[in-house]
Computed example of a mutant assay.
Amino acid sequence: MIHYKSKEEIELMRKSALLVSATLETVAGALKPGMSTLEVDDLIDQFIRDNGAIPSFKDYRGYPKSSCISVNEEVVHGIPNAYVLQDGDIVSVDVGVFLNGFHGDSAYTFAIGEVKEEVLKLMAATKAALYKGIEKALVGNRIGDIAFAIQEYAEKERGYGVVRELVGHGLGKHLHEDPQVPNYGKRGSGPMMKEGLVIAIEPMINMGTREVAYMDDGWTVATRDEQPSAHFEHTVAVKKGQADLLSSFAGIEKAEKANSALNTNY
């Protein structure tokens, strides 16, 4: 069942989503070679709790940490651990917060130090695919229109692999609500979108094959061919004329740029 939100509820969700954005902005300013993914998770947990919220992912269906941190060929759901980030890595950081009774959810893939040009192109294409999907999050369109737009751009135009096993989702009082929001599919298919629908759109795009496998920890999903994968996600409210982004990358991109300039000597 799809739970539609009132204007007041959407504004509460905007606060949750923007706290996720602020959390990822803090990460963007701190990431550097030599930092472990567990240290990143500790930073995230502390920032969320200091701002009066609860990490949505902690203990969700038994998940042990406050964020999902996936490095290089890891697609999503990487469990923060002692792995130390290296120059040339890319790292997807997925964060959710629960604030004022509602969840916010967003993800961003960061470059650590000097990353290969072909990998930077994958990251840029994945972010662009996200916005292609967001353009279709309009009243009267169908979920398949979002899915088709992402797949058409990432797979047909750019030649990357679009992950099938993991999808975006509705969002609200629960972290995962109906409907599912795939990153592949047919235009004009799926549920029709109405005012008040809030969804997390999150393309997961692989440099090589779309095939993935679950790791031994039962959570981490990685590419079968061990090529890099990128992941970007926004919380979006469906509107007439233009989708309403409840989360924002603006502060993240600014902090990312400043941090990159600061760490050029690494």
Rank of each mutant, 00 (worst) to 15 (best):
K136G: 07
E39F: 02
I134F: 00
R158N: 07
V181S: 14
D217W: 02
Y108W: 10
A230L: 02
H231G: 01
I48R: 00
Q46K: 15
L85I: 10
K7H: 08
G185E: 01
T235D: 10
N100F: 11
E8Q: 08
V91E: 10
K239Y: 09
A111R: 13
A137K: 01
S66D: 11
Q227T: 14
I112W: 13
D94F: 13
V27H: 00
V163M: 12
Q151L: 13
L197E: 07
E117S: 13
S92V: 01
G88Y: 02
Y108S: 01
I199M: 11
L38M: 15
V97D: 06
E195Y: 10
L18A: 03
N100H: 14
E114Q: 12
K121A: 13
K136R: 12
H174N: 15
N265I: 14
T223S: 15
V221A: 11
E39Q: 09
E152L: 13
M123N: 07
L197Y: 10
E157D: 06
G185D: 00
K7M: 05
S67E: 00
M35P: 00
L99N: 08
V167R: 10
H231S: 04
G159Q: 10
T26S: 13
L120D: 05
I54A: 12
I54R: 12
E155I: 05
A243W: 07
G218F: 04
R210Y: 12
S247R: 01
R210L: 07
E211V: 10
V97R: 08
L175R: 01
E195N: 07
V115P: 05
G159M: 08
G78P: 03
S66I: 08
I48A: 01
A22L: 14
A82W: 11
E39K: 03
N51H: 15
G96L: 14
A111K: 15
D94K: 06
S248M: 03
I205F: 00
P203L: 04
